[in-house]
């Protein structure tokens, strides 16, 4: 039984501004789902819809076996079993850490509250700071208080809005680690919104990619990276070579050669090659030759821009070999990992 279910959820801000467009989605208990996409793709609006801070125009949201939003029903945020960690944390500035965490525990006895605060502070590694006020804490500490506050009432679902956007890069790795640990220890189901692919891939069990309000693909990070269903998804997860291909009875044919797959006669699409899937064969000439256009040194590897026929490609090569522009090279492709994105005719 899924914990959260979205059915054809749509949210418009005006007739031509559709923030969330017909989204179907389910989240399993214990799962960590990341919503990602460029800014303005509707991921934050979706989070607010789930929290109850916005009301959908169409569709239905089911949470923990209850309908919380539909045409007839709307459960306000204060009655939904969700916790939300805001992008700016939204800590109550006039309350100390303990009071902030306690705020949501309204029907608890004072002994239970006290115990829960201690427990939460221990969970987020801030024991001893309960008397501090938000302005006396670092950004990372404030964020952990915000998480503790959201988790304290034991929500069925925790929502995190851009948890890494207010932190500098040095702190980010640490925070990623911290949040993963906290969520795992708390055993909560969580949805996080991030525009950063690295954050999404390193933390989430599954990732949902949005573009202009539509859900393009939702799957495990590895699948999204290796087998994207859409050219946008492919390029969203890093540099990719998209080579137009035409299907044949035995596979596909393209500018850089033939690839044998299942029968694809009559179909067209794009061959999806990551830069590291293109190898340079130094020992012999292969069917695909190319000319080096430019070489960029990138520290761990070098990045080559090459031209094969009318195709411009990008590939990553180890630093052990040196290349120069104008040089002719021969390419190998790792057939095991070849993936084609078919275009609907």
């Amino acid at each position: 039984m899924s914990l959260l279910e979205l059915k054809q959820v749509t949210k418009k801000y005006s007739t031509d501004a559709v923030a969330v467009n017909n989204v179907d989605l389910t989240v399993q208990p214990g799962e960590l789902l990341a919503l990602t996409g460029e800014s303005g793709c509707g991921k934050t609006t979706l989070l607010r819809l789930i929290a109850g801070l916005e009301r959908p125009d169409h569709g239905e949201i089911n949470l923990d076996n209850h309908t919380v939003a539909s045409k007839q029903v709307f459960v306000p945020p204060q009655q939904r079993p969700v916790g939300l960690v805001f992008q700016d944390y939204a800590l109550f500035p006039h309350m100390n850490v303990a009071q902030n965490i306690k705020f949501g525990l309204k029907s608890w006895s004072s002994a239970e509250r006290k115990e829960r605060v201690t427990e939460m502070l221990h969970l987020v590694n801030l024991s001893g700071l309960e008397k501090r006020y938000p302005h006396q804490l670092s950004g990372g500490q404030q964020q952990r208080v915000a998480i503790a506050r959201a988790l304290a009432p034991k929500p069925r679902l925790l929502l995190l809005d851009e948890p890494f956007s207010n932190l500098d890069t040095l702190l980010k790795d640490q925070v990623r680690e911290d949040i993963s640990t906290i969520l795992r220890r708390a055993g909560t189901t969580a949805i996080l919104v991030t525009h950063d692919v690295q954050d999404a891939m390193s933390m989430a069990d599954r990732i949902a990619v949005f573009k202009e309000g539509r859900l393009l693909q939702i799957d495990r990070p590895r699948i999204l990276y290796q087998q994207p269903l859409d050219t946008y998804v492919a390029s969203f997860f890093g540099r990719v070579n998209l080579i137009p291909v035409v299907g044949t009875a035995s596979g596909v044919t393209s500018e850089i050669g033939q690839f044998f797959l299942e029968n694809a006669d009559g179909k067209t699409g794009f061959l999806c090659l990551r830069p590291q899937q293109i190898k340079v064969n130094l020992s012999r000439e292969t069917a695909a030759s190319a000319e080096v256009i430019s070489v960029k040194y990138l520290g761990d590897y070098q990045q080559l821009e090459i031209r094969s026929g009318n195709c411009r490609l990008c590939c990553h090569q180890p630093l052990s070999v040196s290349f120069h522009s104008g040089q002719t090279i021969h390419l190998d492709f790792d057939l095991e990992q070849v993936h084609v994105i078919w275009v609907d005719s």
Partner: peptide, 27 residues
């Protein structure tokens, strides 16, 4: 007062009155 502070209070089950008296008025 940031709008998110009010939203945070709502999500933590605060009623309109509790939000007004415990969050907004002190601030």
């Amino acid at each position: 007062i940031s709008q998110t502070v009010d939203e945070a209070a709502s999500i933590l089950q605060a009623s309109h009155w509790k939000r007004l008296s415990q969050i907004n008025m002190p601030l």
